[in-house]
Amino acid sequence: MPAVHLWGKNMFQLLAQNVLNALQLGSVYALIALGYTMVYGILTMINFAHGDIFMVGTYLSLAGAVFLLGLPLKLPLVVVFLGAMTFSMLLTALLGVSIERLAYRPLRSAPRVSAVITALGVGLFLENITLGILGPQPLHFPDLIPLTRWEVAGLTFTPLQVLIIVMAAGLMILLDLLVRRTLLGMAMRAIAYNRPIVPLMGVPVDHVISLTFAIGSAIAAAGGLLYGLAYPVLDPLMGVRIGWWAFIAAVVGGIGNIRGAMLGGFILGAVEVFTPLVLPSSTYRDFVAFSLLLVLLIFKPTGILGRPVFERV
């Protein structure tokens, strides 16, 4: 994939170029990792279906874009982009909320294992139902962003790259502010801290949890749109690998910790971009990523930024 053709340039440029690529990819991972981390933070539940929610979000972005491009209105691309994004974020949020409502909420007081298995089941369900409807052949994402290339100081970058990084950063800052500064964020943190007590304070727990799923899913959809623009081949199983990677990102950064998810996303982006430069082939990237996860879990189980979770004795 990236960077192999860059061997001719000098080391610094090569490095800088790859850091840029890692940032781009890491932004997408970070956006998806946020969904894992928010749900874990509030419900201490690993929502293994989140990768597939991202996949659905990507397809919905595609559907929105194709629909808007197909209208005989000659809409400007910015409008198509924003329209597709709104469409997909709304519908994916709805999907996330429905999944929580139908599959997870009945299990809220059940053993944690039940919830995790259910999440795995929901993920497989989404994959296979998409496969059933669309078939296995990949679909192509239309170009919504001009394909120009800018060259600055030997570095090549595209408007798309800038858009992805800026938009991801913007969404993350917004989310961080939301959680730290607003009443909703306070309610989320309160539920994470002590769920049985919070309803007694008048916090509508169910609404807050629904909103958490809605926000997490919507952000995954935005990530899906950006991902589709950058890597324009979609297939129904795309959520599996990207979902796992984003999940590792969340755990590496410290699951339950929003800033940790961002950090983890960028680390995983770097792993993916730099693996083929160090090891003989890019097929080792899964090995590197999961080994990183394993080593981290053994030596620092709470991730880089996570707080230690004591098991009650």
């Binding site: 259910t118 929901v122 993920g123 497989l124 369900f125 296979n128």
Partner: peptide
């Protein structure tokens, strides 16, 4: 479609 049934079964079972 049979691969839709398995996961669905799992979810219903858990609930």
């Amino acid at each position: 479609w049979r691969w839709v049934v398995g996961p669905l079964m799992l979810v219903l079972l858990m609930i």
